[in-house]
Amino acid sequence: KLETFPLDVLVNTAAEDLPRGVDPSRKENHLSDEDFKAVFGMTRSAFANLPLWKQQNLKKEKGLF
């Protein structure tokens, strides 16, 4: 399991300012399950079932792209 970080560490943070080991294209993977659901309004599995373009739009909207 990946290390999780608080939302404010990941949202609207440039790649070079992210904690070590965080993939800038997969910031959402480093949210706790609770934060993930609070941000996206759905579970990880529901998010994973969305088309890629919709996932990317949601990530942009939430500052996690």
Rank of each mutant, 00 (worst) to 15 (best):
K1C: 13
K1Q: 13
K1D: 11
L2G: 11
L2F: 15
L2N: 11
L2D: 09
E3Y: 08
E3R: 05
T4F: 15
T4N: 07
T4D: 04
T4C: 08
T4Q: 08
T4W: 10
T4S: 08
T4H: 10
F5C: 04
F5T: 02
P6E: 06
P6N: 06
P6S: 09
L7Y: 15
L7E: 03
L7N: 02
L7H: 04
L7Q: 02
D8W: 15
D8S: 15
D8Q: 12
V9W: 12
V9Y: 15
V9M: 14
V9T: 08
L10Q: 01
L10C: 03
L10I: 04
L10R: 01
L10H: 06
L10E: 01
L10F: 02
L10T: 02
L10W: 01
V11L: 12
V11A: 11
V11Q: 12
V11D: 03
V11H: 04
V11I: 14
N12S: 09
N12M: 08
N12R: 05
N12L: 08
N12K: 06
T13C: 11
T13P: 07
T13A: 10
T13K: 09
A14H: 09
A15K: 09
A15G: 09
A15Y: 08
A15L: 10
E16F: 04
E16C: 12
E16K: 09
E16T: 08
E16A: 12
E16R: 06
E16Q: 09
D17F: 07
D17H: 08
D17C: 14
D17L: 06
L18I: 06
L18D: 05
L18E: 04
L18Y: 07
L18Q: 04
L18W: 05
L18F: 07
P19I: 02
P19Y: 03
P19S: 01
P19Q: 01
P19M: 01
R20G: 15
R20P: 15
G21Y: 08
G21R: 03
G21M: 04
G21L: 05
V22C: 06
V22K: 02
V22W: 03
V22D: 05
V22A: 04
D23W: 02
D23T: 03
D23V: 03
D23N: 08
D23C: 08
P24L: 06
P24I: 07
P24C: 06
P24T: 04
P24S: 07
S25I: 10
R26P: 01
R26M: 09
K27F: 04
K27D: 02
K27I: 15
K27Q: 04
K27W: 05
K27A: 06
K27L: 15
E28M: 01
E28G: 01
E28T: 03
E28D: 02
N29L: 15
N29D: 15
N29T: 07
N29Y: 12
H30W: 11
H30N: 06
H30V: 02
H30K: 02
H30R: 03
H30S: 07
H30Y: 14
H30P: 02
L31D: 01
L31P: 01
L31I: 08
S32H: 06
S32Y: 04
S32Q: 04
S32A: 07
S32T: 14
D33W: 05
D33Q: 07
D33E: 12
D33T: 06
E34N: 11
E34D: 11
E34L: 09
E34H: 11
E34I: 10
D35I: 05
D35E: 08
D35Y: 02
D35H: 05
D35N: 05
D35R: 01
F36K: 00
F36A: 00
F36P: 00
F36V: 01
K37H: 15
K37V: 15
K37R: 14
K37A: 12
A38C: 10
A38P: 00
A38G: 08
A38T: 14
A38M: 13
A38R: 13
V39G: 01
V39I: 08
V39T: 09
F40C: 00
F40R: 00
F40Y: 01
F40W: 01
F40G: 00
F40D: 00
F40V: 01
G41S: 10
G41N: 14
G41L: 11
G41C: 12
G41F: 08
G41I: 03
G41M: 11
G41H: 13
M42E: 01
M42I: 09
M42N: 00
M42D: 00
T43Y: 06
T43G: 10
T43H: 09
R44Q: 08
R44A: 06
R44L: 06
R44W: 05
S45I: 13
S45T: 12
S45A: 13
S45R: 11
A46E: 14
A46Y: 10
A46D: 13
F47Y: 08
F47C: 00
F47L: 02
A48W: 10
A48Y: 14
A48Q: 13
A48F: 09
A48K: 13
A48E: 10
A48L: 09
A48S: 12
A48T: 11
N49V: 14
N49D: 15
N49H: 11
N49C: 12
N49A: 13
N49K: 14
N49I: 11
N49M: 13
L50C: 04
L50T: 02
L50W: 04
L50P: 00
L50N: 00
P51S: 08
P51K: 05
P51C: 06
P51F: 01
P51V: 04
P51M: 02
P51A: 08
P51L: 01
L52D: 12
L52S: 10
L52A: 11
L52G: 09
L52C: 14
W53L: 12
W53I: 11
K54Y: 12
K54H: 14
K54E: 12
K54D: 12
K54C: 14
Q55N: 00
Q55H: 00
Q55W: 00
Q55Y: 01
Q56L: 12
Q56Y: 08
Q56H: 11
Q56S: 10
Q56G: 08
Q56K: 11
Q56T: 13
Q56P: 00
N57M: 14
N57W: 11
N57C: 15
N57L: 13
N57E: 11
N57F: 13
L58Y: 06
L58V: 05
L58W: 05
L58I: 09
L58Q: 04
L58R: 03
K59L: 06
K59V: 05
K59D: 00
K59M: 03
K59R: 08
K60A: 12
K60F: 10
E61W: 07
E61M: 11
E61K: 09
E61P: 02
E61G: 07
E61R: 08
K62H: 13
K62G: 07
K62A: 15
K62V: 15
G63I: 02
G63F: 06
G63C: 06
L64Y: 03
L64E: 02
L64Q: 02
L64A: 01
L64S: 02
L64I: 05
L64R: 01
F65C: 14
F65T: 12
F65R: 04
F65K: 06
F65Y: 14
F65G: 15
F65W: 14
